[in-house]
Write a protein that binds this DNA or RNA. Structure first.
Length: 208
DNA sequence: TGCCAGGCCCTCTTTAGGGCCTT
């Protein structure tokens, strides 16, 4: 990651899978990366205004009691909007998190203009031999030390950041002439999977 | 009671279907 690059790695916990079906965010967390280091964090539970079902309570460990004393979504998302500014974003399966980010922002008249990177799509291209590309599997596959609870937003954001940094390191080791800038990583995620090694080789040649 | 999303990717594809990921 170049010195000029900053990235905000975010993760939502939600009441379900689809904001279009009425699902809401119940927790948002993010870590800010600069020069390959975590330099800032954001974490907040938020009250969606209704009870969450027992599956979500069990899956996330976030109870209705915890949410009853949390700030409303509108307040938390306003604070999060200030936190991210126009920094590029990253999430594991970004299409999911961006749906909720855009949905919650829209409720308070805000919109997000930041580009979004996806560690899931990137991992499918860079780590084709991983058993699967779930976040927890990638953490183990890459040998990342961890001590925390999956399916809580801050821990998942922290692990996503570490997976991302490990993938950047692999590119830098395998392709010494390639700088894995945000622009390059966004382009990489759009390459057909089978073309990725040759494509990265080509980036190297171009840069030399 | 039963059902529930959507984007991406792969292939025995493209006039489609199904698996992977996220909560």
């Amino acid at each position: 990651m170049t010195a000029a690059n900053s990235l905000i790695v975010l993760d939502f916990e939600t009441t379900g899978l689809s904001p279009d079906q009425g699902d809401r965010a119940i927790e948002i967390a993010a870590v800010k990366l600069q020069r390959g280091q975590v330099v800032d964090e954001f974490q907040a539970l938020m009250n969606p205004g209704r009870r969450v079902n027992s599956f979500i309570e069990s899956y996330t460990g976030i109870s209705n009691e915890m949410l009853s004393s949390a700030a409303p979504c509108e307040q938390v998302m306003g604070e999060f909007y200030q936190f991210i500014g126009d920094t590029p974003l990253l999430a594991h399966n970004a299409s999911f998190d961006m749906k909720f980010l855009n949905g919650e922002f829209a409720r308070i008249g805000l919109s997000c203009n930041s580009p979004a990177l996806c560690s899931l799509l990137t991992a499918r291209r860079l780590l084709p031999d991983a058993p699967n590309h779930k976040l927890g599997t990638l953490v183990d596959y890459l040998g990342i030390d961890h001590d925390g609870q999956y399916h809580r937003a801050l821990f998942d954001a922290q692990m996503t950041a570490q997976v991302w940094l490990a993938m950047l390191e692999q590119i830098e080791q395998a392709y010494p002439d390639v700088t894995p800038s945000i622009e390059l990583m966004m382009a990489l995620a759009k390459r057909p999977k089978k073309q990725v090694p040759a494509w990265l080789d080509k980036q190297s040649v171009v840069r030399v």
